[in-house]
């Protein structure tokens, strides 16, 4: 009984962490980037202020926007938070973790994207359509690489269940595994594409023609935009957390003892700080690439994942 209660508490702590830490990570990345580029930053808390501001603004809808346009922000937010309840961010004993393995998790994100793409087309502008078309293309090309990467990791852990995968890595003796290293590389490239970071997409751009994700959500305003932006920050956080859980899960809380939970939150904060720094290091020297170069970018991700899979069978 106590274990059930404990796991339910863990679940709620995790959802709270996911909701709050998403903007923090985004703020951290922006702050570091400002420092790197010699600009003054607005601090880690700026994304919170942005979201709060958007929530109290009026909503302006496009003339012929349908219910899909208005429903999408809520669904995207809901799907993202659901994903946050499933990924082992701070603990592996989440009661909702068995609800989806990694394949189902990818599908949950895909559903959020499906609706975002529909919303992009709903207003009936050229830019929304362009954003939808491109975003779906990038997602399409990322999918095989993602599956291959998942396949490689699941070869090592013999499972696709997320908490199981994290547990196997923490409990097994440390081994040099080229397969996991390649899978990680592939995963990073895919995560860059999926979360819309440079060099695939530029989240800070102000020119409609260079946007992918932003072009789809161009018509959003007020609380809808707040939800979309929030969900996007959570998504970045979740992909980082997923990478950490699959490849560097050490420090994550198990079933017992209880003090591991605050320790896990602390470790998570440290890991996320490092991930944020890595993102900045990757993004600062790079420019956004042409949309048709993304094919090769994701082809590379597929290649890494495949070499990982091959090296598992050939070398391990």
């Amino acid at each position: 009984m106590t274990t059930t209660l404990y796991s339910i508490i863990v679940e709620f702590v995790q959802i709270a962490v996911v909701l709050l830490a998403g903007p923090a990570l985004a703020g951290w990345v922006r702050m570091l980037k400002c420092r790197m580029q010699g600009r003054t930053s607005a601090g880690v808390l700026q994304p919170y202020r942005d979201i709060m501001k958007l929530f109290v603004k009026d909503v302006v809808l496009a003339e012929n926007a349908s219910w899909i346009f208005r429903f999408t922000p809520y669904l995207v937010f809901g799907a993202t938070v659901m994903a946050g309840a499933i990924i082992p961010v701070i603990s592996t004993v989440l009661p909702s973790a068995p609800a989806a393995d990694i394949i189902a998790l990818v599908a949950i994100f895909a559903m959020a994207r499906f609706f975002t793409a529909l919303a992009g087309m709903d207003a009936g502008t050229a830019f929304g359509g362009m954003g939808s078309s491109r975003e779906m293309t990038v997602a399409t090309l990322a999918e095989p690489a993602m599956l291959m990467s998942v396949f490689t990791v699941s070869l090592v852990s013999g499972s696709t269940s997320l908490s199981q995968m994290a547990q196997v890595v923490t409990t097994n003796p440390l081994m040099l595994r080229p397969s996991l290293a390649f899978a990680l590389l592939a995963f990073i490239l895919i995560a860059v594409a999926e979360t819309g970071r440079i060099p695939v997409d530029n989240p800070a751009t102000h020119l409609e023609l260079t946007m992918l994700h932003e072009a789809m959500t161009l018509e959003y305003s007020g609380r809808h935009l707040a939800l979309i932006e929030w969900a996007k920050m959570i998504k970045l956080f979740l992909y980082a957390a997923l990478g950490v859980a699959l490849f560097f899960p050490w420090g994550i809380a198990g079933a017992t003892p209880l003090w591991m939970l605050p320790a896990a939150v602390f470790y998570l904060a440290v890991k996320m700080a490092i991930v944020g720094a890595v993102i900045v290091l990757i993004e600062t020297p790079l420019a956004k690439m042409r949309i048709f170069r993304v094919t090769e970018f994701l082809g590379m991700a597929f290649l890494f994942a495949t070499i990982g899979m091959l090296s598992y069978f050939m070398l391990e």
Partner: peptide, 20 residues
């Protein structure tokens, strides 16, 4: 053996790198 495996994987990677 593990280190050798990693190096082999890296050699394979560079071979693909030459292609790409």
């Amino acid at each position: 053996a593990q280190i050798n495996g990693v190096l082999a994987a890296l050699i394979l990677l560079t071979a693909f790198g030459l292609l790409a």
